[in-house]
Nucleic acid binder design. Structure first.
Length: 466
RNA sequence: GUCCCCAUCGUCUAGCUGGCCCAGGACACCGCGCUUUCAAUGCGGCAACACGGGUUCGAAUCCCGUUGGGGACGCCA
């Protein structure tokens, strides 16, 4: 129905906290919708609650959006800079008779509803009291009827206006409330589709009433089901990381997080899950949004992350790994060797954070033997004599090629009548400190002859001390 | 308390214009294969239409109720 008109959507967070998962999902869906329709994605900061808003939070929100790659076409606009405009709007409503002054004290504003005492003040009395300097708030005069609207996700929603009560538009300090702010801004900014969390469903009738009273066309509405924690309760700090930047720090890739988030509450309609941004943009539609709240589960996010990590280009992977290693104070002794190590470790990594633990032995000599690994693979008494012998055989292998290192070990095992696995597992602990690692002989290649030999030597010494 | 909304495997979901569904995919989990540990990978398995009434030849799909869950009721957003 709005084919000829440019689609304009907005993400309007209030800077009273960091960008959390729910907010990020809302921003993401708005972004996808805008990109899909070649429309505009506008960022607006709803900072009319001066006591709880902060510049730091604004920066945090922008940081989160940049991390996710959600670029905006306009803004950020700040409501705090448009106060005059809201007053003007409220004043117009006041003049037109669809709002009235309320002189109640903030503390006892109990009487809401159609029966609010100030509603029956005569225009003359109201104006006189205002002129005498008495403080007042502006309340909207909710008409007695029903308000119905079509939601793109939830369908038809109807409420009896009597449950709405005469809500405040302008506080007695002249600052607009949320309802006034959003409507005025959405009108002024030409917003065509309001896509936001389902927690705003019950606010929508109030806002529609405002559009009507002001004679402005209403935008389309689409409410997104909420994201819940594993306990099905609203996602909160109790559930651990709730800020998207916490996920960035925990080692998730923005693309993986993006893909995962897009599928929370939306589905392309078929079985596809691994989707690029381009595909997501092409496929996205409000029809694919579900109504039921979704639980934010880490298992699948981890899986997505491992997929993206595995599919990342060598350049990207190297950059990510280098950053992580440096952050952990591990300096690769041979940067060129990192690609070889990455090739071996790729499939074993789920989060960027894993790089430092799994990579450590590849680039640092100061690693301990994992206790469990030692208990499992180094307890065989025969190893004490076997390892030094094996070491001397390896010393004779000058080429130290992938095939020869394996052949040397297997032949030695055969000569001694022991299983190759016994030696392989022991050497794995020696070379990596871990009981879990890539194939032993591949590791030897990455480490090189010198490192390998000295580490086997270290194992021999360790076994002597046992 | 009042109002609004939601309800398919443990989780994300497909299905939603009724028969192709004794319900499909993915994650997780459990087996088996491979094997030098762990991954990866291949194969297989476990597992859901909340409940009760209708409507219909036939319902996960439509209607009503119950239960459960969520949201909103601020001079917060």
């Amino acid at each position: 129905m709005l084919k000829h008109k440019e689609v304009r959507v907005r993400f309007a967070p209030s800077p009273t906290g960091y960008l959390h998962v729910g907010g990020a999902r809302t921003a993401l869906f708005n972004w996808l919708f805008a990109r899909h329709h070649n429309g505009r994605f506008i960022l607006r900061i709803e900072d009319t609650d001066f006591t709880r808003s902060s510049e730091e939070m604004v920066e945090g929100i922008l940081e989160g959006m940049r991390w996710l790659g959600l670029d905006w076409d306009e803004g950020p606009y700040f409501q705090s800079q448009r106060i005059e405009r809201y007053r003007e709007f409220a004043d117009k409503l006041l003049q037109g008779g669809s709002a009235y002054r309320c002189f109640c004290r903030v503390e006892n504003n109990s009487a809401g509803g159609l029966g609010h005492p100030c509603r029956s003040l005569t225009p003359a009395e109201s104006a006189a009291r205002a002129n005498s300097g008495e403080a007042f708030a502006v309340r909207f005069k909710v008409p007695g009827d029903k308000t119905t609207f079509q939601d793109h996700v939830f369908g038809s929603i109807e409420v009896d206006n009597s449950v709405l009560e005469d809500f405040v538009l302008l506080r007695s300090d002249g600052i607009p409330t949320y309802h006034l702010g959003v409507v005025v801004d959405d009108v002024d900014m030409g917003i065509t589709h309001v896509i936001r969390g389902a927690d705003h469903i019950s606010n929508t009738p109030k806002q529609i009433l405002l559009y009507l009273a002001a004679g402005c066309p209403t935008p389309e509405f689409a409410h997104l089901p909420l994201i819940l924690g594993p306990d099905k309760q609203r996602l909160s700090k109790r559930h651990g990381a709730t800020s998207v930047m916490a996920y960035a720090e925990a080692g998730y890739l923005p693309d993986a997080f993006f893909n995962f988030l897009a599928l929370l509450g939306w589905s392309p309609g078929d079985d596809r899950e691994m989707l690029t941004r381009e595909e997501l943009i092409r496929l996205f539609s409000l029809e694919g949004v579900g109504k039921a709240d979704a639980v934010f589960g880490l298992d699948k996010l981890d899986w997505f992350n491992s997929q993206y990590l595995r599919n990342a280009s060598p350049e990207v992977l190297r950059r990510i790994a280098m950053e992580e290693l440096q952050a952990e104070g591990i300096m690769p002794f041979s940067p060129g060797r990192i690609d070889a190590a990455l090739a071996l470790l790729k499939s074993r990594i789920r989060k960027v954070k894993d790089f430092s633990t799994v990579f450590r032995a590849f680039f640092a000599d100061d690693y301990p033997y994992d206790e469990a690994a030692a208990a499992r693979f180094l307890k065989e008494p025969a190893l004490r004599n076997l390892i030094p012998e094996l070491l001397s055989r390896y010393r004779q292998d000058a080429a130290f090629a992938l095939e020869s290192t394996e052949e040397t070990l297997r032949r030695f095992a055969e000569d001694k009548g022991v299983k190759a696995g016994l030696l392989i597992n022991a050497l794995r602990v020696a070379l990596t400190g871990q009981g879990v690692a890539p194939g032993l002989f591949e590791i030897m290649q990455v480490l090189g002859r010198e490192k390998t030999l000295s580490r086997i030597e270290r194992l021999a010494e360790y076994l002597q001390d046992q």
